[in-house]
């Protein structure tokens, strides 16, 4: 069912990402201090917001999984963390480039936002190894949800605490937006946020669709009595399989 409407969604996403790039590169004014480099802001900040929101959303999906015991919620949570991890890596890379340009260093320790983001990424980097280390799929799903909820709660708390450390150099994005970003920059920023949100949702739905198709194919093959293409002992996997519940829709 996940494939429904995926084509129009993909087209809208591609169009809004393209529009954002054009607007950011040609329409938005150059920053007075940073010049052209400031344009990376339109990619970096929305990606970071989406990464963190994705982690929190994965925690909420994990709560739904523990409440309903429906393995599809575990799959949704897994895919959300997966997409957010990929987004997070791009945030670290674009952030590093920005830091190098603006402050002259690839990494700056006295900036709480940067440090807490790295901390969150290091925590979530253990999500897949944790799943991989548990063989029983039902227990794997349950333990992964416990992790996703704990880590999802950690994200906002961690940001609040690390921010208490005294030194600030990072621009306070959201307060800047309402405060002193000039009009055009503000429009482009919200456009970028919208486009990247769509990108996250589209990628999430693509992966969900792929996982469901794979599960359904496996189930149909089993019904036909075909030989499994994975010979020998069953391989361990970090990804939820959906087969253990027998319900694929």
């Amino acid at each position: 069912m996940y494939g429904k409407g995926l084509r129009p969604l993909s087209l809208i996403t591609a169009a809004s990402v393209a529009l954002t790039l054009v607007a950011a590169l040609f329409w938005a004014p150059n920053d007075a201090y940073l010049g052209f480099l400031q344009k990376i802001f339109y990619v970096h900040v929305p990606l970071a917001i989406l990464t963190l929101c994705g982690f929190v959303a994965a925690g909420l999906m994990a709560i739904a999984h523990l409440r309903t015991r429906d393995p599809r919620w575990d799959m949704r949570s897994y895919v959300a963390i997966h997409i957010s991890l990929i987004f997070g890596v791009t945030v670290l890379i674009t952030g590093s480039i920005w830091a190098r340009g603006a402050w002259g260093h690839w990494w700056v320790w006295n900036d709480p936002t940067l440090v807490s983001f790295l901390l969150v990424m290091l925590l979530y980097a253990t999500y897949q190894p944790l799943r991989f280390a548990i063989e029983d799929p039902e227990r794997q799903a349950r333990y992964a949800s416990v992790f996703a909820i704990t880590a999802g709660a950690f994200v906002p708390i961690n940001f609040a605490i690390v921010r208490l450390a005294p030194a600030y150099v990072h621009p306070r994005t959201l307060s800047n937006i309402s405060g002193n970003l000039p009009g055009r920059m503000q429009v482009v920023f919200y456009l970028a946020l919208f486009a990247i949100t769509l990108l996250w949702i589209t990628l999430w739905r693509f992966e969900m669709t792929a996982k469901h198709v794979a599960a359904q194919t496996r189930r149909l093959r089993a019904l036909l009595g075909e030989e499994s293409d994975e010979e020998g002992p069953v391989r361990r996997s970090a990804a939820p399989s959906l087969t253990h519940a027998g319900s694929v829709s």
Partner: peptide, 27 residues
């Protein structure tokens, strides 16, 4: 409890708990 019944408990315990303990260390 999360790490003990996994196949890599000696690795996962520290890897999961250390990031969660960083705010405690900071405090």
């Amino acid at each position: 409890a999360l790490a003990v019944r996994t196949q890599a408990r000696d690795l996962l315990g520290p890897l999961v708990s250390l990031p969660l303990l960083v705010p405690v260390l900071l405090g």
